Simulated assay, not measured.
Amino acid sequence: MNPDVASELKELSSTLENIESVMDLDALRSKITELETEAAKPDLWDNVEYAQRVSSQLVHSQADLRRITEMRQRVEDLEVLYELSEAEADSAGLAEADEERARLRKDLEALEVRTLLSGEYDSREAVVTIRAEAGGVDAADFAEMLMRMYLRWAERHEYPVEVYDTSYAEEAGLKSVTFQVNAQYAYGTLSVEQGTHRLVRISPFDNQGRRQTSFAGVEVLPVVEETDHVEIPEKDIRVDVFRSSGPGGQSVNTTDSAVRITHQPTGIVVSCQNEKSQLQNKAAAMRVLQSKLLTRQKEQERAELDALKGSGSSWGNQMRSYVLHPYQMVKDLRTDHEVGNPEAVLDGEIDGFLESGIRWRRQQEAA
């Protein structure tokens, strides 16, 4: 076998061994067995929320195990394919093996990123809020573009999404939107998207066709769980109900089903209007409020720790530029990762940015 190919195959196998070690396959198999036992209980669905969580964890754990075992099989099959192709002087087989080696390297790099998600809440589902910032109607339109980008990304990975609240701007686009991505490690993966996104383009809303710069902010929170114990006394919140607005079905604008919750000690305001009933909207809004308070608590603890260390931990606010004119480029300002096809990025092809962001964050934490 070609020495360079043999060396790379050995390196790929070593990388996979490290991934298998970090993900602890024996522990993963034990977890799957426990979840399967729990899922088989006849009274499981008496508690729908718990049942859904068990089912989701089981599906994702099985997928993780299957992904790793399939990757190991691919490494072994690739070695055999090279040996047979070289023994038979099969040029077509060698070309096929080279293509598979490139695909395998890329897939292993993506899987390796998962092992870097070891933060306290990284394995959680994610609550994402996008807000239009400076730039008027262009900013509102940009906020809607970002929402579509994340929804397309989730769709590509077959991750379910629940939209909790949508506030439409007057002329076009969105003032804000909040949605939940229901997938394991969604928070750890998407948390690197937090910050200010910047769009430069010829404004479709400017009659003179001038170039416009607009901004939208992205906030990413972990979904709270029962073990988090986020206490919110009734006296600390004010609940207002109102009629839903914007496009919708027959129930929109007919009943006061939308809910706005104000957490008076902090001034945090959360609203939800996309569920069918007032009770469902209140429950969804409370979950988002708990996520915000949990994150606020952890940020305060981290700030106190940074103060003791005598150093800050801010990554900076503006994190990515999307340039559509006078040239085409999307660039992450922290990692320098860039793509010359904004259309593909805005259509959900953001895995490269997510992976480079996760690696960059780990480097910052290590430093």
Rank of each mutant, 00 (worst) to 15 (best):
E343T: 15
A63C: 08
N274V: 00
E99W: 00
M147K: 15
R361I: 00
L9R: 13
E125Y: 03
N341A: 03
S56I: 00
K175S: 09
T15N: 13
G246H: 01
R66P: 00
S14F: 04
R29A: 14
D26A: 12
D332Q: 03
L190T: 10
L12M: 15
V137H: 05
T227S: 13
R320Q: 08
D77P: 00
A284Q: 06
R260H: 05
V220P: 13
R320K: 10
S191C: 12
A6C: 05
Q194C: 12
L108H: 03
A27C: 01
S13P: 05
K292T: 04
S356K: 14
S203Q: 04
D98Y: 08
V224I: 13
E193G: 09
H197Q: 12
Y82S: 06
S118E: 14
D64G: 03
R260K: 15
Y322E: 11
L294F: 07
E88K: 04
D206R: 05
S85C: 04
Q184A: 15
M319N: 13
I32T: 06
T166Q: 10
D46V: 08
A216R: 04
I350G: 08
T262N: 14
R53I: 03
A172M: 03
G348D: 08
Q208C: 05
S191L: 10
R29I: 07
T254E: 10
H325I: 01
S123K: 11
L293P: 06
G267S: 04
G248Q: 09
Y185S: 11
N47E: 12
E83Y: 05
G249Q: 08
S30C: 00
M319P: 03
L9Y: 11
V127P: 04
V223S: 12
N182S: 13
A95M: 04
K276L: 12
D206M: 08
R287Q: 15
L108M: 00
P233E: 04
S251A: 10
P160D: 05
V200T: 13
S245A: 10
R302M: 13
T196K: 07
Y327R: 02
N274D: 13
L58H: 07
Q264H: 09
D336Y: 03
H60M: 13
E365V: 09
R67W: 05
Q363M: 07
E79C: 06
E162V: 07
E109W: 07
E343R: 11
E17R: 15
S245L: 06
V270S: 01
H197A: 10
S85R: 01
